[in-house]
């Protein structure tokens, strides 16, 4: 229920942003705020839960409520919020190092559990905050201080992994196409279940190989989500880089209702209730 019409500006908290100029995350932040505003969600009814890394700082620039957690733990924290306060709009956010490395186990269970919240991953294929190590989504052959002879590990395929774990909504976007991204995020937030939005968000300082031009050339726009498993797997298999809503396994869409928080039972009733639970 909206009190007044919301604009993206209502979501800014005035805290100066310390991302590097040109960082893809600026666009992600703006698109997320625009998406929430377009759905008329009040800032105080949102909780943005982030992990550790440059992307993790996004919570500090959010004018609603935010939890800046530890490395890889944004998903459990977000699910704790959502499970206990379904009246709130919950978004988990972080980078590829945070979410697909240390946090990858939680991704599987979050997809299985299918609580109604959105997970935004700012995927730049590198550990930027710690100055440029290879990440779970860095391509084969990627060179960095920790893989000076070229990365020998196959990159994680988050779209496949989330889908295989039962994710009911999977999308991929590009921070260089803000209009498209804003719409993606709005759809993800409205989806009634777990929604993953993996976003190519270039790190202009440490991953110059995968910058804006690189993505602009590689991405292909998908208008309709895959209808079958075979279509989906074909759509997301490398070297394809599809952007759009790629998988939506059912059409339930809604937004949390700002309802009265439950009042706790009277003390006398509680004792009687507890007595009834014992042998």
């Amino acid at each position: 229920m909206a009190d007044t019409a919301v604009t993206a500006k209502d979501y800014m908290n005035g805290n100066p942003i310390t991302w590097c100029p040109g960082c893809g995350d600026f666009s992600v932040l703006k698109c997320m705020h625009r998406a929430l505003a377009s759905l008329n969600i009040q800032p105080e009814d949102t909780v943005l839960v982030s992990g550790i890394g440059c992307s993790g700082k996004i919570g500090h620039y959010h004018g609603g409520y935010a939890i800046h957690g530890t490395h890889g733990r944004a998903l459990p924290i977000a699910q704790g919020v959502k499970a206990s306060r379904p009246d709130l709009t919950v978004i988990a956010a972080g980078g590829d190092g945070d979410g697909y490395g240390i946090g990858v186990g939680h991704l599987v269970h979050a997809a299985r559990r299918n609580l109604n919240f959105t997970y935004i991953v700012m995927d730049n294929g590198v550990y930027g905050n710690t100055k440029g190590q290879t990440s779970p989504t860095s391509p084969l052959g990627y060179q960095s201080s920790t893989t000076p002879f070229g990365n020998a590990d196959l990159p994680i395929n988050p779209l496949l992994l989330a889908w295989a774990s039962g994710a009911s909504f999977v999308a991929q976007g590009f921070s260089g196409d803000a209009k498209h991204l804003e719409n993606l995020i709005a759809q993800a937030v409205q989806h009634e279940g777990f929604s993953l939005v993996n976003i190519f968000s270039p790190c202009v300082v440490f991953n110059k190989a995968q910058g804006y031009d690189f993505y602009r050339q590689k991405i292909n726009y998908i208008e309709t989500p895959a209808a079958t498993a075979q279509d989906y797997v074909g759509m997301i298999s490398p070297p394809s880089m599809p952007v759009g809503v790629l998988w939506k396994s059912y059409q339930k869409d809604s937004l949390p209702i700002k309802e009265q928080r439950q009042s706790k039972a009277e003390e006398a009733d509680i004792a009687a209730y507890l007595r009834s639970r014992l042998a």
């Binding site: 939890i67 530890t70 459990p76 977000a78 704790g80 919020v81």
Partner: peptide
């Protein structure tokens, strides 16, 4: 961490 989220 879920408990922390709920408590927050």
């Amino acid at each position: 961490y879920a408990a922390a989220g709920a408590s927050y």
